[in-house]
Design a protein around this nucleic acid. Sequence first.
DNA 1: TGCCAGGCCCTCTTTAGGGCCTT
Length: 200
Amino acid sequence: TRGNATQSQSEYTLVFFDLETTGLDVAACDIVQLSAISGEETFNLHMVPRCRMTDEASRITGFTVQGQALLLHGGPVKTVTHGEALSSFIDFLRSFHQPLLVAHNAKRFDCPVLSRALDEFSLKDEFQQVVAGFLDTFLLSKELLAATKVNKYSQQYLVKLFLHKTYMAHNALEDVRALQELYNKWNPAPAMVRKQRFSL
DNA sequence: TGCCAGGCCCTCTTTAGGGCCTT
Protein backbone atom coordinates (compact mmCIF):
# COMPACT_ATOMS: atom_id res chain seq x y z
CA THR A 1 0.00 0.00 0.00
CA ARG A 2 1.26 3.44 -0.91
CA GLY A 3 1.31 6.39 1.47
CA ASN A 4 2.32 6.66 5.08
CA ALA A 5 0.93 4.58 7.93
CA THR A 6 -1.70 7.13 8.90
CA GLN A 7 -3.04 7.46 5.37
CA SER A 8 -3.16 3.74 4.68
CA GLN A 9 -5.23 3.19 7.81
CA SER A 10 -7.67 6.06 7.18
CA GLU A 11 -10.76 6.01 5.02
CA TYR A 12 -9.07 7.85 2.17
CA THR A 13 -5.71 8.92 0.73
CA LEU A 14 -5.27 12.57 -0.18
CA VAL A 15 -3.95 13.08 -3.71
CA PHE A 16 -3.29 16.70 -4.63
CA PHE A 17 -3.59 17.47 -8.34
CA ASP A 18 -3.37 20.43 -10.71
CA LEU A 19 -3.88 21.19 -14.38
CA GLU A 20 -2.18 23.74 -16.59
CA THR A 21 -4.43 24.46 -19.55
CA THR A 22 -4.74 26.58 -22.68
CA GLY A 23 -7.00 29.07 -20.92
CA LEU A 24 -9.81 29.64 -18.45
CA ASP A 25 -12.80 28.55 -20.52
CA VAL A 26 -13.71 25.24 -18.83
CA ALA A 27 -15.98 24.29 -21.73
CA ALA A 28 -13.28 24.63 -24.39
CA CYS A 29 -9.75 24.70 -22.96
CA ASP A 30 -7.34 21.76 -23.28
CA ILE A 31 -4.92 20.25 -20.75
CA VAL A 32 -1.19 20.97 -21.20
CA GLN A 33 0.19 19.62 -17.90
CA LEU A 34 -1.32 17.19 -15.39
CA SER A 35 0.46 16.80 -12.05
CA ALA A 36 -0.34 15.10 -8.77
CA ILE A 37 1.33 14.28 -5.48
CA SER A 38 0.50 12.08 -2.50
CA GLY A 39 3.15 11.97 0.17
CA GLU A 40 6.37 11.43 -1.77
CA GLU A 41 4.69 9.89 -4.82
CA THR A 42 4.49 12.28 -7.75
CA PHE A 43 2.84 12.24 -11.17
CA ASN A 44 3.70 14.72 -13.92
CA LEU A 45 2.89 14.53 -17.64
CA HIS A 46 2.72 17.08 -20.45
CA MET A 47 0.53 17.09 -23.54
CA VAL A 48 0.46 19.08 -26.77
CA PRO A 49 -2.83 20.98 -26.59
CA ARG A 50 -5.34 20.39 -29.38
CA CYS A 51 -6.54 23.95 -29.35
CA ARG A 52 -4.74 27.27 -29.37
CA MET A 53 -3.28 28.59 -26.13
CA THR A 54 -4.51 32.02 -25.11
CA ASP A 55 -1.74 34.59 -24.92
CA GLU A 56 -2.48 35.09 -21.23
CA ALA A 57 -2.17 31.35 -20.50
CA SER A 58 1.18 31.26 -22.36
CA ARG A 59 2.41 34.31 -20.47
CA ILE A 60 1.46 32.86 -17.09
CA THR A 61 2.53 29.23 -17.59
CA GLY A 62 5.47 29.70 -19.99
CA PHE A 63 4.03 27.05 -22.34
CA THR A 64 3.90 27.68 -26.09
CA VAL A 65 3.26 25.40 -29.05
CA GLN A 66 5.51 25.28 -32.09
CA GLY A 67 4.35 22.90 -34.81
CA GLN A 68 3.72 19.61 -33.01
CA ALA A 69 6.02 20.47 -30.11
CA LEU A 70 5.25 21.83 -26.67
CA LEU A 71 7.80 24.32 -25.39
CA LEU A 72 8.31 25.51 -21.80
CA HIS A 73 10.04 28.89 -21.70
CA GLY A 74 11.25 28.16 -25.23
CA GLY A 75 12.68 24.69 -24.57
CA PRO A 76 11.15 21.41 -25.78
CA VAL A 77 9.16 19.32 -23.33
CA LYS A 78 8.53 15.57 -23.53
CA THR A 79 4.84 14.92 -24.16
CA VAL A 80 2.34 12.07 -24.31
CA THR A 81 -1.12 11.97 -25.89
CA HIS A 82 -4.11 13.03 -23.81
CA GLY A 83 -5.42 9.46 -23.81
CA GLU A 84 -2.09 8.14 -22.52
CA ALA A 85 -1.88 10.83 -19.84
CA LEU A 86 -5.39 10.14 -18.54
CA SER A 87 -4.87 6.36 -18.53
CA SER A 88 -1.57 6.80 -16.70
CA PHE A 89 -3.26 9.10 -14.20
CA ILE A 90 -5.92 6.48 -13.47
CA ASP A 91 -3.15 3.87 -12.99
CA PHE A 92 -1.36 6.26 -10.62
CA LEU A 93 -4.57 6.80 -8.63
CA ARG A 94 -5.25 3.07 -8.53
CA SER A 95 -2.05 2.61 -6.52
CA PHE A 96 -3.64 4.41 -3.54
CA HIS A 97 -6.34 3.35 -1.12
CA GLN A 98 -9.52 5.36 -1.80
CA PRO A 99 -7.82 8.37 -3.43
CA LEU A 100 -9.51 11.67 -2.54
CA LEU A 101 -8.48 14.22 -5.15
CA VAL A 102 -7.67 17.69 -3.86
CA ALA A 103 -7.21 20.84 -5.94
CA HIS A 104 -7.50 24.60 -5.49
CA ASN A 105 -10.76 25.74 -7.15
CA ALA A 106 -11.39 22.10 -8.13
CA LYS A 107 -15.16 22.47 -8.22
CA ARG A 108 -15.15 25.33 -10.61
CA PHE A 109 -12.09 24.61 -12.74
CA ASP A 110 -10.02 21.42 -12.52
CA CYS A 111 -12.93 18.98 -12.09
CA PRO A 112 -15.02 20.09 -15.06
CA VAL A 113 -11.96 20.25 -17.32
CA LEU A 114 -10.74 16.81 -16.22
CA SER A 115 -14.24 15.39 -16.46
CA ARG A 116 -14.67 16.61 -20.02
CA ALA A 117 -11.32 15.10 -21.03
CA LEU A 118 -12.22 11.75 -19.43
CA ASP A 119 -15.54 11.73 -21.30
CA GLU A 120 -13.69 12.38 -24.54
CA PHE A 121 -11.69 9.15 -24.12
CA SER A 122 -14.52 7.13 -22.55
CA LEU A 123 -12.49 6.84 -19.34
CA LYS A 124 -15.01 8.47 -17.01
CA ASP A 125 -16.51 5.22 -15.65
CA GLU A 126 -13.08 3.71 -15.01
CA PHE A 127 -11.99 6.92 -13.30
CA GLN A 128 -15.12 7.03 -11.12
CA GLN A 129 -14.51 3.47 -9.96
CA VAL A 130 -11.01 4.36 -8.77
CA VAL A 131 -11.56 7.78 -7.19
CA ALA A 132 -13.21 8.23 -3.77
CA GLY A 133 -14.16 11.86 -4.34
CA PHE A 134 -12.93 15.44 -4.54
CA LEU A 135 -12.06 18.28 -2.24
CA ASP A 136 -11.71 21.95 -3.20
CA THR A 137 -9.15 23.82 -1.08
CA PHE A 138 -10.49 27.16 -2.32
CA LEU A 139 -13.90 26.42 -0.77
CA LEU A 140 -12.24 24.67 2.18
CA SER A 141 -10.04 27.70 2.90
CA LYS A 142 -13.07 29.98 2.96
CA GLU A 143 -14.68 27.82 5.64
CA LEU A 144 -11.43 27.30 7.57
CA LEU A 145 -10.63 31.01 7.59
CA ALA A 146 -14.17 32.34 8.00
CA ALA A 147 -13.45 33.59 11.52
CA THR A 148 -10.18 35.28 10.56
CA LYS A 149 -9.42 38.53 8.79
CA VAL A 150 -8.16 36.67 5.72
CA ASN A 151 -10.28 37.59 2.71
CA LYS A 152 -8.05 36.52 -0.15
CA TYR A 153 -7.97 32.86 -1.07
CA SER A 154 -5.64 32.45 -4.03
CA GLN A 155 -3.19 29.58 -3.58
CA GLN A 156 -0.19 31.87 -4.01
CA TYR A 157 -1.44 34.25 -1.32
CA LEU A 158 -2.33 31.46 1.11
CA VAL A 159 1.04 29.77 0.64
CA LYS A 160 2.82 33.04 1.35
CA LEU A 161 0.61 33.74 4.37
CA PHE A 162 0.77 30.30 6.00
CA LEU A 163 4.08 28.85 4.76
CA HIS A 164 5.96 32.17 4.54
CA LYS A 165 7.40 31.38 1.14
CA THR A 166 7.00 31.86 -2.57
CA TYR A 167 7.08 29.09 -5.16
CA MET A 168 6.89 28.54 -8.91
CA ALA A 169 3.17 29.06 -9.30
CA HIS A 170 1.71 27.88 -12.62
CA ASN A 171 4.06 24.93 -12.81
CA ALA A 172 1.56 22.19 -11.96
CA LEU A 173 4.10 20.04 -10.09
CA GLU A 174 5.25 22.98 -7.96
CA ASP A 175 1.61 23.92 -7.38
CA VAL A 176 0.68 20.48 -6.04
CA ARG A 177 3.78 20.36 -3.81
CA ALA A 178 2.83 23.71 -2.30
CA LEU A 179 -0.82 22.72 -1.95
CA GLN A 180 0.05 19.50 -0.11
CA GLU A 181 2.27 21.44 2.28
CA LEU A 182 -0.45 24.05 2.82
CA TYR A 183 -3.06 21.38 3.50
CA ASN A 184 -0.79 19.60 5.98
CA LYS A 185 -0.25 22.90 7.76
CA TRP A 186 -4.00 23.46 8.02
CA ASN A 187 -4.76 19.82 8.89
CA PRO A 188 -8.53 20.31 8.63
CA ALA A 189 -10.79 18.23 10.87
CA PRO A 190 -12.18 15.01 9.32
CA ALA A 191 -15.70 16.36 9.86
CA MET A 192 -14.93 19.37 7.69
CA VAL A 193 -13.42 17.17 5.00
CA ARG A 194 -16.51 14.94 5.01
CA LYS A 195 -18.72 18.01 4.74
CA GLN A 196 -16.75 19.51 1.86
CA ARG A 197 -16.16 16.30 -0.05
CA PHE A 198 -17.98 15.99 -3.39
CA SER A 199 -18.22 13.84 -6.51
CA LEU A 200 -17.89 14.62 -10.22
C1' DT B 1 -9.12 35.99 -37.19
C1' DG B 2 -10.94 37.35 -33.04
C1' DC B 3 -13.18 36.39 -29.32
C1' DC B 4 -12.67 35.06 -24.26
C1' DA B 5 -16.22 32.13 -18.26
C1' DG B 6 -19.04 31.15 -14.77
C1' DG B 7 -20.27 28.52 -10.28
C1' DC B 8 -20.04 29.78 -5.78
C1' DC B 9 -20.58 32.75 -2.02
C1' DC B 10 -21.70 37.04 0.26
C1' DT B 11 -24.81 40.64 1.22
C1' DC B 12 -26.69 46.87 1.24
C1' DT B 13 -30.26 39.25 -0.67
C1' DT B 14 -34.09 35.89 -2.47
C1' DT B 15 -38.10 40.21 -8.18
C1' DA B 16 -29.86 40.64 -7.65
C1' DG B 17 -25.36 42.29 -8.25
C1' DG B 18 -20.65 41.75 -7.80
C1' DG B 19 -16.04 39.77 -6.44
C1' DC B 20 -13.35 35.74 -6.33
C1' DC B 21 -10.56 31.83 -8.24
C1' DT B 22 -8.72 28.81 -11.81
C1' DT B 23 -5.37 29.18 -16.95
